[in-house]
Design a binder for these strands. Structure first.
Lengths: 137, 137
DNA sequence: CTGGATCCCAATAGATACTG
DNA sequence: CAGTATCTATTGGGATCCAG
């Protein structure tokens, strides 16, 4: 019954994760939602790395299918949509935290944009709790 | 002096990590070394997912440049090489562990090949210590 | 206007066959 | 065993077009 997801159906949990996250953009989109609080297509387009419109649309659709992202109409602005992380998406917080710690160790120099590393160093649990609560740390 | 690595030089630590790991194969190669103990080109080729030869060669070269993997001549077999994780590569252990835990939560069904999830659940610290020590858990 | 589809084209990733 | 060569498929950028 296990839905065959992607390319390699090896039964390895690392491969399962990489089927969803193993590309240049998916995790950056998740980061934009978790860390920067981006909630709209427009806000995601203006991320730090400059994703293009077709890729963003495609990845959002895929992430929605994978249960990472939810899409709803904006209650206050009927012509807009709101994207949010699901519980499954927010549960990636520890993965993001470990990636940031690793980068911080080996790429100490540039960490300019986020300040995330410092926040994690001060109180890692608090950062994860924020993300899990759907708030930006 | 920060060497510009890859595509997006945004200064975000997540992006730094993804520049090295954000593709379908790099982290699987690292997993094969860390978890399965693969040390040769041939052993890596026979991983669970079936990487093709050119991709493996290219990724190994890149991972070596990025300081994740080291390549040395096999002392016992002069015509063979041995690939190993560097400290930087082994320090990805927590990232792999978090990915496995996440997959285990949302893809409980298939975890057949590794048994890694169970080991992590029994003693996470021990698994990470193994990998950091260059031993397979 | 926001959100997204589409087309064109360049660049990368990848499978297979072959080589020292 | 450890790759290279070749060829095809997929990805991605950028502009533009389209719908609500």
């Amino acid at each position: 019954m296990t839905e065959t997801h992607g390319k390699y159906d090896s039964g390895c949990p690392v491969a399962y994760a990489l089927d969803i996250l193993g590309d240049r953009w998916s995790l950056l989109i998740i980061r934009d939602m978790a860390v920067r609080g981006a909630q709209t297509y427009g806000a995601l387009l203006e991320g730090w790395e400059g994703i293009s419109t077709n890729i963003l649309a495609q990845r959002l659709k895929q992430l929605e299918q994978d249960g990472i992202v939810s899409k709803t109409r904006d209650p206050e602005n009927r012509r807009s949509f709101r994207y949010a992380l699901t519980a499954k998406g927010r549960d990636l917080a520890p993965v993001i935290v470990e990636l940031v710690l690793w980068s911080g160790k080996y790429n100490a120099a540039d960490n300019a944009m986020t300040g995330l590393l410092e926040k994690i160093r001060v109180d890692r649990a608090a950062v994860e709790a924020c993300i899990r609560a759907g708030k930006t740390p």
